[in-house]
């Protein structure tokens, strides 16, 4: 993967660069603020960017705006936002234009290097990676709505949660210690309850996730 990192803390910037390089990825640029990020993305056209939300000058949500810009201007570049706190409204803003090629993780997740690079790879490939905390919170929100999400069983909701995290059926099966067939049954039931017509499987999957995230 070709990666651009935007993180204002030098310690973390260097460590991320080192870790990704060690794993055979190319870090084209590691920059400390949002403007430099936009410039670096325009210059290097990376597969994916890792973006801290709080960056200078205001230390609030510069990273989020840069991420939304990048998704708009460079659809080929995935964006993985990461932050000390995750806010559902940031997630909602980020996902407003689609869930493909975006990720939003708590900074803590970097502490699990394998999982983090895995998420980064998913985002680079046009997938989604949402932090479990965000997903649970959105799920709690979604569960209160009436548009079919409330009808989901506990198990179905956790399957949908993992779908939102960007996992495949096989990965979900492994995580829940069930067979792939069982997961498929759950997925079909979810589609049914959400009223998604049987057409192309992948499309329905994205629709289900989006319905769930926007609820």
């Amino acid at each position: 993967m070709r990666v651009v990192i935007a993180e204002d803390a030098a310690v973390l910037r260097e460590l991320l660069t080192e870790m990704l390089t060690e794993r055979g990825h190319e870090v084209c640029a590691a920059v400390p603020d949002a403007d430099a990020l936009r410039a670096a993305v325009a210059e290097h056209r990376p597969d994916v960017t890792v973006v801290d939300i709080r960056m200078p000058p205001t230390h609030t949500d510069e990273g989020l705006h840069a991420a939304i810009d990048i998704r708009r201007t460079h659809p080929g570049t995935g964006v993985l936002l990461f932050s000390q706190h995750v806010e559902t409204r940031y997630a909602a803003q980020l996902l407003a234009e689609g869930a493909a090629g975006v990720g939003y993780l708590l900074k803590d997740r970097v502490a699990n290097v394998a999982e983090f690079t895995d998420a980064l790879a998913r985002v680079a490939a046009g997938g989604t990676a949402l932090d479990p905390v965000i997903v649970t919170r959105l799920a709690a929100d979604g569960g209160r709505q009436s548009d079919g999400l409330g009808a989901l069983t506990e198990r179905e909701r956790s399957v949908l949660t993992m779908m939102a995290e960007g996992r495949t059926n096989a990965a979900i099966a492994q995580a829940l210690y069930v067979s792939a067939g069982t997961v498929e049954k759950h997925v079909a039931s979810i589609f049914g309850k959400l009223g998604l017509p049987a057409s192309e499987d992948h499309n329905r999957r994205v629709l289900a996730v989006l319905r769930y995230l926007r609820a």
Binding site: A9, V11, L15, M19, V110, V113
Partner: peptide
């Protein structure tokens, strides 16, 4: 809060990350 965010929290993330790499 900002000092914690820019200081201790960043250091801890870096520490946890290094420990994970060490573990690996």
């Amino acid at each position: 809060e900002r000092d914690l965010h820019d200081g201790a929290q960043v250091r801890l993330v870096a520490l946890a990350m290094s420990l994970d790499m060490l573990r690996e």
